[in-house]
Design a protein around this nucleic acid. Structure first.
Lengths: 180, 180
DNA sequence: TCATATCTACCTATCAGTAGGTAGACAACC
DNA sequence: GGTTGTCTACCTACTGATAGGTAGATATGA
C-alpha cells in the first residue's frame, strides 16, 4: 500500500499546520519534506486554498472513520473513545487538532477552507448528539456542542500551558456534567 | 488622554492578530495602520517576540480590570458578566479572543509569548474558581477549567462556522452545568 | 506493429511581493 | 548636548505563483 505523492504532501502539510498554523506552512517546506520541488507541489495543489481545503477534508474523513469504529451502545465506552480521539490529537509541543488551528485562524482563511472546518465541527457534534439521544439524555444537541467546544478549547489551553493534565481535567469534568 | 504611539501600535497589532493570527501580522502592516514607517515600529518593539509578549500582557491586564469590575457576590450576575466578556471578544468575521489565537498557534510561537498566554488562562480559571468556592460549589477548580475551555472552544467553533448562536448555546449550557 | 499524440509527474528558472531586521541621518525637546 | 522618536535606505531571506521544458508511461490510429 504505497502512498501517493499527493498523500505524502497532505501528510506533511497536516504535520506542519497542526504544529505551527496554516499561515506558517509554505510550499517550499512541504517540497523539502517530501523530496520534490515547490513547483511540483503546485502541480498537485494549484493554490494554497486548494491545499487547505483538501487537508481539512482528508482530516475530517479520517476522523469519521474513527468515529464509526468507536460507535457503540455503551455510553461510557463511547464517550471514553471520543475523548481518546481528541486526546491522541494532542501531543505537547508537536500538534493539536487540525481544526482547532484552522478554527482559530478562520477569520483570515479562505472561505472554502472554513466550510470544511465548519463541517468537521458539525460532524462531531452530530455524532455526540445521536449518542446522547439514544440514551435519553436531555438537551442532547446543546450538550454535544458543549463537549466539542470544551475538548477543542481544552486542547488549546493545555497546549499553550504545556500541561497535558489541563486537557484531561477538562475532558473528565465535561463528561461528568453529561453522564450525571 | 492621548494614546502613545506604543499603545497605538499594540492596538493595531491586537486587531490584526485577533483577525488573522500572529504569523499573518507584519511590522509593515502595523506601520501603515498607525501612520509611521516599519523601522519606527522596530524602535518601540525590537523584535516580533517582544511585540507578541507585550501584546498578550496588555490584553491580560485589560481583561483583569474587567474581571475586577464584574466581581460581585451574586453568582448568576457574576457568571453573566464573565460570559459577556467573552461574548464581546467574539465579533464574527472580525475577531476572537487574542489568547484563543495565541493558544492555537502556541507550538510555533516564542516561549515568552506562550508564558503570557498561559498566565491569561490561569488568571481566568482562578477568578472563576474563587467565585465557585465562595458559593460552595464542589470541584471548583475543575469546573472553572471547564468553563474557560468551553468558552474559548465555543468561540473558535462559532467563528469558523460563522454562527454566533453556537457560542451562545455553549455558554448557556456550560453555565447550566455549573449552577444546577 | 510502429508512429503519433497525449498525459503524468516532475524539473529549472524566475517573478513580483513581502518578511523581519539594521545603519545612520535628522529633528524636536528637556 | 544628550535623549527620544522618526525617517530614508537598505539587506537577506522567503513567499505563492508562473513559464517553459522533459522523461517516461499510456493511449490512439494506420
Amino acid at each position: 500500500m504505497s502512498q501517493t505523492m499527493k498523500d505524502k504532501i497532505l501528510q506533511a502539510a497536516e504535520d506542519r499546520v497542526r504544529g505551527a498554523g496554516f499561515a506558517e506552512m509554505s510550499f517550499r517546506d512541504l517540497a523539502k519534506d517530501v523530496g520534490i520541488k515547490s513547483a511540483s507541489v503546485h502541480y498537485h495543489f494549484p493554490t494554497k486554498p486548494d491545499l487547505g481545503e483538501a487537508l481539512v477534508q482528508r482530516y475530517a474523513e479520517q476522523f469519521e472513520v474513527h468515529l464509526e469504529k468507536i460507535d457503540q451502545d455503551d455510553l461510557q465506552k463511547a464517550l471514553d473513545g471520543f475523548v481518546a480521539l481528541y486526546s491522541q490529537a494532542l501531543v505537547l509541543n508537536e500538534s493539536i487538532c487540525l481544526c482547532a488551528v484552522m478554527g482559530a485562524e478562520a477569520i483570515g482563511l479562505p472561505e472554502n477552507v472554513n466550510q470544511r472546518t465548519k463541517a468537521f465541527f458539525a460532524m462531531n457534534k452530530t455524532w455526540l448528539e445521536h449518542l446522547f439521544t439514544r440514551h435519553g439524555i436531555e438537551d442532547a444537541g446543546d450538550k454535544a456542542g458543549l463537549v466539542v467546544a470544551a475538548l477543542e478549547g481544552g486542547m488549546i489551553v493545555a497546549s499553550a500551558s504545556n500541561d497535558r493534565t489541563l486537557f484531561d481535567r477538562v475532558a473528565r469534568t465535561a463528561m461528568a456534567s453529561i453522564t450525571i
